[in-house]
Structures are given as C-alpha cells and as structure tokens.
Design a protein around this nucleic acid. Structure first.
Lengths: 185, 185
DNA sequence: AATTTTTATTGATAATTGTCAAGTAGTAAT
DNA sequence: ATTACTACTTGACAATTATCAATAAAAATT
C-alpha cells in the first residue's frame, strides 16, 4: 500500500475524469542520477510523482547529512515544509538513481483545488494519508530499538534497502552507519 | 503559535461566517478529571477543541503506557488514526484535568466540508498544520538527545511540563521516568 | 490525621548506541 | 590496470539511556 494510485484507488475510481484532469497539470521530466532537484533555502514549487528511479529528501544539521524521506516508483516527494508553507525550505532533494517523474506545480494544484472542490477534497485525503504514515514512523522512533526499526523498514520497503546506500538508510533510521552495519550482521 | 485560532487566524479573518458556521456543529461538554473520552478498539467519531483543562492521547504497547499527544486550552485532540481512517483506534484519550470542550462529530464535519468547499479547504489547511508540527517532532526524535528534547518541550510548551506528571512527559519524549528525573537535575 | 497508593528520585549495574581509528572492499576516474 | 575516492566493516572505548531496587515524597483514600 505504498503507491500513490493504490492509496487513492477509491477516489480515482469514483472520479473518472481524475487522470484526465491531473494529466493537464502534470509534466514529464527526466533527471540523471545525482541531480539536485531542490536546494535548501529556496521555495519549492513542485510536487513529484515517480515513474522510475529513487529520490532522497535530506537536510544538514551541524554538517551532518540526515535523510528524512525516500521515494521510489509510484511514490511522491517534495520539499514538504516549503511546498505546504510557501517559505524557504530546510530540505534538499536529490536523484539517487536516474529519475523519470511527473511534476505538478504548486500554483496549478491550487488552481485545480479552487476550481474543482472535489479535488480540494482529494488534496485533503492525500494529506491524511501522509499524516497517518508519519504517525507510524514517529511511533517507531519513539519506542522501538534501532534493530526493530531496521526490521520494520526491511519488511515494509525492502526495495529501499536494496537500492539505497547504507549510510542513507542509517540516518533515516536515526542511527550511525557503524550501528546499522552491526545490526545487519 | 499553538492555538487553533492563532494558527488559522488568516482563514478565519477571510471568512466572517466561519465562527457562525462552526458553532452550528460544535457542542459544549464537560468531563471531570480522569474521564476516558475514547477507548482503543472503537471508532472515534469526534474531534475536540479545548476550552479549559488538559487531555492526553495514549496507547499501550506490551503493557507499557505511551503518551503520544497532549492538548491544553485552544488546542485540539482526537484519536487521529480512527478519526481519519474510520477504523478502530489504537489510542485511548483521557482527561488529565477537568475538561471543558467543544466537540465536533465527524459526520457533521464531513457534511460541512461537502456542502461548503471553502471549508473543505480549511480541513486541508488544518491538516497541513498538524503535518508540519509532526514533522518537527519526528526530526527531534530522530537526532536530538533526551536532554535536548526535554529542553525543546520546555521552551515550546512549558505549560505541559507544569501541569502533567513526569511519567507521562517521559513516555512522550521517549525516555524512562528515571532518565527524565536525571535530566531535570 | 493516618494509611494506602502512586509518583519521583537516587544508586548500582547492564544494555544500547555513538565515537574514533584502522583496515577492507567496492566504485569511479584516469 | 592503477590510482583515488567513497562506502562498509570491525575493534576498542566512551557516552547515553534502560533496568532493577530501594527510598523518599506526594497524592488520594479512609
């Protein structure tokens, strides 16, 4: 239940024009591996839906690189703080693999929401799902051990562990690369 | 910037009928201290806005009581997993002090959203704010020490530390009561 | 007010995780 | 292929936090 279309299958089924309406504001793009798609300190005007590849959202805290979100095929990403609040972001976004994406401009999305109330509703449902996912991650950090957090990720999103370097997985789990290496033994 | 009205002041100012429209579906209630307002395993049909008192949202994991949300005056609470997903909740909600609240039924809120698109929009904005707050908490858990997390809470919500027992604050911060006691020395 | 119960603190010890350093392996570049 | 660079692993040790036990303090009950 990770993919965008799975998570919102009911809404999409109830609104046959969904695909058509969104195609009007989605733009296909390719970005080679290691491209920086967004830089901290700038306002992020786009949300992305991945066709192929993996993206990483991260930020720096006292020179330490901390990953906070990964997205693979059929998942979405953006510099969420900035996209929501329309202010400078703390996040960077980079392509960990060659990326094919659809991107949607914030302004186009706003216009769609304003002109078509049922899509305003969709925006709310989409955010609800993000919220639920985040609550689950928070619960894990609050009271699971590093080992348990690794096992949960391994079970829920094995493709991330296979395709992303250990040091990024480590910071995402809130541990050092050394600790993660020992956990995997 | 904790209170419901502060956080949504702009929207409320732009929509003079906001208070009036919401008053139509808000119901005043009192609950004495220690009342259980919601039980795990049930679907939660209400969202609450506090007039006075403090509420605690918590759940059990292997017999351990874990606090995950506190709300005081002008803040909101609900069993968020259930309220959003319309399924059985994992959370309990209790009154830590005598409570005066306005409660809003999920169905009334849905009807308001459906009949008045601008409130659908409000629902989305409200959720966006919750999301931003949660991201911040997650960042803290991911890479701050217990001491730092305590200091951040002390700075942001001192009234919680003053009015809530240490053992609840401890589980909210993800540490044992013993550790919290030592941090406070 | 006295008793019971719950909560908070303190000490000793153990477990978990982080830090630093060294070495290995893998990847990319020339 | 050789070199350079980065990532991964391992070991020794330090720091943080948890656990268990005992006591003290506070709150609730009688």
């Amino acid at each position: 239940m990770n993919s965008f279309f799975e998570q919102h299958a009911t809404f999409i089924a109830d609104n046959p024009k969904f695909i058509e309406d969104f195609q009007g504001i989605m733009h296909y793009e390719q970005h080679p591996k290691n491209t920086i798609l967004h830089e901290a300190g700038k306002v992020c005007d786009y949300m992305y839906l991945i066709i192929s590849g993996i993206a990483r959202v991260f930020y720096f805290i006292e020179d330490k690189d901390v990953s906070c979100h990964f997205a693979a095929e059929q998942e979405t990403f953006t510099a969420i703080d900035s996209f929501i609040q329309r202010k400078k972001s703390k996040y960077f976004v980079e392509a960990l693999e060659d990326l094919e994406v659809f991107k949607i401009a914030h302004s186009d999305l706003e216009n769609l929401f304003t002109s078509t109330p049922k899509y305003e509703r969709f925006g709310r449902l989409f955010l609800q799902q993000l919220y639920i996912d985040l609550v689950e991650r928070l619960d894990n950090l609050q009271l699971k051990t590093a080992q348990e957090r690794y096992e949960i990720l391994l079970e829920k999103k094995p493709y991330l562990i296979q395709r992303i370097t250990s040091k990024h997985i480590a910071s995402y789990l809130g541990v050092t690369p050394e600790t993660l290496s020992r956990i995997k033994k």
